[in-house]
């Protein structure tokens, strides 16, 4: 045990997140972009500039725009939601561990699991397409942006998993409607979109290797990211400390 992170809770959460079909789903998520890249390499022959365009679109739309929120949604809502649903959360609550340690441990595992899925989804295509226009720096910057997105998404989805038994459905609606449609079509919503924060962070980390038109400013990412992180973490911690086991558990 080290500080607020409890090794046993982390191990249990990891086993829970990767139980049954979720492991195969995670592998599919992680390798799908590599598969698309291979298909592209086999079929397209338009030179380095089209590879850069393909890589940029693949990472922004498929990985950061779709796989990242979906992986975070599955891991974030399962970390608590699954245990609330089947009643096994009780076994953690009746142990001599502060409840916020349980939250911190689950959050860290959810974030790391999400990063473990998106890292190969970004790095393998980056390696397959590496050249003058697809640089290692660019790929690593996208990964840094995705890591920030993983942290923010998981913080929000962990809170959602504890708040509502239909967290997965609500989260999916959020990903599709807000992140997928509203934040892309209405400029005002960009400054609330975690996807936009991830892309802006990737751009900031790339030192010019990644250029995204109309991205939100780094200060917006910093302030809004901090607000989301603190608010969702505080709410989840508070909710868990006040959490009462219902009669049916």
């Amino acid at each position: 045990m080290s500080g607020p992170l409890n090794n046993t809770v982390m191990w249990l959460t990891w086993r829970q997140l990767f139980a049954k079909r979720r492991l195969w789903l995670a592998i599919a998520f992680a390798l799908a972009p590599a598969f698309f890249t291979l298909v592209f390499r086999l079929l397209a022959d338009d030179g380095p500039s089209s590879e850069a365009t393909f890589f940029g679109t693949l990472i922004r739309e498929i990985v950061i725009g779709t796989l990242l929120p979906l992986a975070a949604l599955i891991f974030g809502t399962t970390a608590f939601g699954g245990e609330v649903d089947d009643g096994t959360l009780l076994y953690l609550l009746v142990k001599p561990i502060p409840r916020w340690h349980v939250h911190a441990s689950k959050l860290v595992v959810s974030v790391l699991s999400t990063i473990a899925v998106v890292a190969p989804a970004i790095l393998i295509p980056g390696l397959l397409l590496s050249g003058p226009d697809v640089t290692t720096r660019g790929a690593v910057s996208y990964l840094a942006g995705a890591a920030l997105g993983a942290l923010l998404y998981c913080t929000v989805f962990l809170a959602l998993g504890l708040a509502n038994r239909r967290a997965l459905v609500i989260g999916l609606l959020y990903v599709v409607s807000f992140e997928g449609i509203l934040s892309r079509s209405l400029p005002g919503f960009k400054s609330l979109s975690i996807r936009e924060f991830s892309l802006a962070a990737a751009q900031a980390a790339s030192n010019g290797a990644i250029v995204i038109e109309g991205s939100v400013s780094p200060s917006t990412v910093w302030w809004m990211g901090t607000i989301i992180l603190v608010a969702a973490t505080y709410w989840t911690g508070f909710r868990l400390v006040r959490y009462e086991v219902a009669e049916r558990l």
Partner: peptide
């Protein structure tokens, strides 16, 4: 305090136990 759980244990009625363990 969670420290009471060093002296106290509960066996809940619900059957659910992590099936993957």
């Amino acid at each position: 305090s969670p420290q009471i759980y060093r002296r106290l244990s509960l066996v809940p009625e619900r059957e659910a136990v992590q099936p993957f363990l």
